[in-house]
């Protein structure tokens, strides 16, 4: 009975330790009904964009398709290649990378997680060597913030408001995906001749 009680106490203690949860720092939303597009740490202006422009994905989530639809809508001129290798990226001056992991997307593209990680590393090396402008687009919302998605976002630039504040680079936050039209129009819409 004594031994049994000791075992019981040990198990309960282990259970208590295992059950301790860490609290996360709460995030403050920047956008609101009145302010649907909020830019911090500077401005996004059209002169940031240098042709030719490439849209690609890191993680192969469906968000790159949404970005493609947005860009088509604003009438932008760009190339769309979700699985562009680093050598292909090197041919462009501006790259918009939609980050977000999807096992279905990776499977459909015939890419493993490891291959996508290697591709991401190679792309980021290329953009640095060639001084290519990179825009990180995360359009999947909270649902696309799993461990792998976050890893991919970190590989491109970093996660999001904290990184932008630390590096003092502009970040635009959107209330909904359709609000991206406003920003993309300013950046990419063809100028009337």
């Amino acid at each position: 009975m004594k031994r049994f009680t000791r075992i019981l106490a040990l198990v309960l203690a282990l259970a208590a330790i295992t059950a301790v949860m860490s609290a996360e720092t709460a995030y403050t939303f920047r956008t609101s009904k009145e302010e649907r597009v909020v830019t911090e740490n500077g401005e996004f202006t059209a002169d940031l964009i240098v042709d030719p422009v490439l849209i690609t994905s890191i993680g192969q989530s469906a968000d790159v398709s949404m970005l493609d639809a947005l860009m088509k809508k604003v009438g932008a001129t760009y190339t769309f290649d979700p699985i562009a290798p680093a050598e292909e990226v090197a041919k462009y001056k501006t790259v918009i990378i939609a980050s977000g992991a999807s096992s279905k997307g990776l499977g459909a593209a015939g890419i493993s997680q490891e291959q996508e990680t290697a591709r991401a590393e190679a792309i980021m090396k290329t953009v640095e060597e060639n001084e290519i402008t990179v825009i990180l687009a995360h359009l999947g919302g909270p649902g696309r913030r799993g461990a792998l998605s976050d890893t991919f976002s970190d590989m491109v630039l970093g996660k999001f408001t904290d990184f932008a504040a630390e590096k003092e680079i502009p970040i635009t936050l959107l209330a909904t995906i359709a609000d991206a039209m406003t920003v993309l129009k300013d950046l990419f819409a063809p100028v009337a001749q």
Binding site: A62, S65, D68, A69, I177
Partner: peptide
């Protein structure tokens, strides 16, 4: 996928 993304947008 193109159809779907255009439809949602």
């Amino acid at each position: 996928m193109d159809l779907g993304s255009a439809a949602i947008l």
